[in-house]
């Protein structure tokens, strides 16, 4: 049963990713990416990270991608992929290199390939519930947490300052 869901979500996410890369209009790419994120949220859920899955949908698909769409609309709604290109040789090399990359990545972890990894269900400690994550976040990882909040503040300020019209 799990395998069905896995392959379903996997197929959707890969297809959506390909669509992102292939689409001419930027808006369509954004929409395809949202779809991809949704499928990945499902995968996350299947991996026992409920919290992260929820965050994926809320933050990534819900906020970041919306921001992307806003900017596309703001700048050039009809934005298209530009034709031709003086760097055709890059386009030529991109795919073979990427394929090599996949192959190497897979080969780099031989002991995981084809093996039945890990054992069954997690101990309560490792379950990705909100309570567990919260506990870890506010005890072991409280410093990065606080620092991240400052980071977000900086990002907000930066975005405002940068995008301001200079009048």
């Amino acid at each position: 049963m799990e395998y069905v869901f896995f392959y379903l979500f996997a197929a959707v996410s890969v297809a959506a990713a390909v669509l992102v890369v292939v689409q001419k209009k930027a808006v369509y790419s954004a929409l395809a990416l949202i779809l991809c994120f949704g499928a990945m949220a499902g995968l996350f859920f299947q991996l026992g990270s409920q919290f992260i899955a929820a965050i994926q949908v809320i933050v990534y698909a819900g906020a970041i991608m919306v921001l992307f769409v806003f900017v596309i609309m703001l700048v050039d709604p009809e934005a298209e992929s530009y034709p031709g290109g003086s760097l055709r040789h890059i386009s030529f090399w991109a795919i073979p290199l990427a394929v090599m990359l996949v192959f190497l990545l897979i080969q780099a972890f031989p002991d995981f390939l084809g093996s039945v990894a890990g054992t069954r269900a997690s101990s309560p400690e490792a379950e990705g519930s909100v309570e567990n994550i919260a506990r870890a976040l506010f005890t072991h990882y409280v410093v990065p947490f606080e620092v991240t909040s400052i980071l977000i503040l900086v990002a907000i300020l930066g975005a405002i300052v940068l995008a301001r019209r200079s009048d």
Binding site: S91, I95, L101, G114
Partner: peptide, 24 residues
């Protein structure tokens, strides 16, 4: 349970697709 390797392979494929997109 789905083996971890499957997820890793999927991750690699998605990463590669992203790479192609960035370069192209």
């Amino acid at each position: 349970m789905v083996p971890t390797a499957h997820y890793l392979v999927l991750s690699a494929i998605l990463f590669a697709i992203g790479v192609v997109g960035v370069l192209t």
